[in-house]
Amino acid sequence: MEANNPRIPSGEAPRVALHSARRVYRAVNGHARVERVGNEASSTWFLRAAGEFDADTVACLREAVGDARRDDAERILLDVYQVGFWDSTFLHALVEAHRGPAGLVLVGPLPFRIRRLFEITGTLRL
């Protein structure tokens, strides 16, 4: 099929450009993950968190944020819509990430439970 394509010289394999980066950070114990999606060359990192975040699983979030900082990300966007459980460790990791050199911005629909946690703890303004 490709041999008949006039844009691909005969005998040469088509080149595929990788436009997106996808990396999944998984908790060693428990059910939590953070996935990086989006443009590899972008100075903005888009992360999607899912699962249950507590002291045993929050390391995957910290690792993803740390990689973004090492990559000199100017902004980190985090979707928390699929987070089903969190504790104060998760909240602390979010506050730490927000205060870092690459600001953290929560995007997408914010579940009521997380919004309420921010209201109760006084961190909603962050």
Score class of each variant (00 low, 15 high):
Ser43Arg: 14
Pro14Met: 14
Phe53Gln: 03
Phe46Asp: 13
Phe46Glu: 15
Tyr81Phe: 14
Val34Asn: 00
Arg62Tyr: 05
Phe85Thr: 03
Ala50Asp: 04
Phe112Pro: 13
Arg36Trp: 08
Val16Glu: 09
Ala49Ile: 01
Asn29Thr: 15
Arg115Cys: 08
Phe90His: 00
Thr89Asn: 13
Trp86Met: 15
Ala73Leu: 02
Ala50Trp: 00
Asp87Met: 06
Val37Arg: 06
Pro111Leu: 04
Arg115Asn: 10
Ile114Gly: 06
Ile120Asn: 02
Ala97Leu: 04
Arg116His: 14
Arg116Cys: 07
Asp79Gln: 07
Ala68Lys: 03
Thr123Lys: 04
Glu74Pro: 07
Ser88Cys: 08
Arg113Pro: 09
Arg116Pro: 07
His98Glu: 06
His31Arg: 12
Gly30Ile: 01
Leu106Pro: 02
Ile120Gly: 01
Asn29Trp: 10
Thr121Arg: 06
Arg23Pro: 05
Ala73Glu: 03
Glu52Ser: 12
Pro9Ile: 01
Ala21Ser: 12
Gln82Gly: 06
Asp56Tyr: 13
Glu119Val: 09
Glu63Tyr: 08
Ala55Tyr: 15
Arg125Asn: 15
Gly38Glu: 06
Ser88His: 08
Leu126Gln: 09
Leu18Val: 15
Met1Cys: 14
Ile114Thr: 13
Phe53Ile: 04
Asn4Met: 15
Ser42Gln: 05
Leu94Asn: 01
Val37Gln: 03
Phe118Tyr: 08
Tyr81Ile: 11
Glu96Lys: 13
Pro14Gly: 11
Val105Arg: 14
Ser43Ile: 08
Val80Asp: 00
Val95Pro: 05
Asp67Phe: 02
Phe53Met: 04
Pro9His: 02
Glu119Cys: 04
Arg62Trp: 07
Tyr81Cys: 11
Gly51Glu: 02
Ala102His: 03
Phe112Gln: 15
Pro6Asn: 05
Pro6Arg: 03
Glu74Met: 12
Thr123Leu: 07
Leu106Ala: 04
Arg22Cys: 11
Asp79Glu: 11
Leu77His: 11
Arg15Thr: 13
Ala3Phe: 10
Arg23Glu: 14
Thr44Pro: 05
Phe118Val: 07
Gly38Arg: 02
Leu94Met: 07
Leu106Gly: 03
Arg26Ser: 11
Ala68Tyr: 01
Glu52Arg: 12
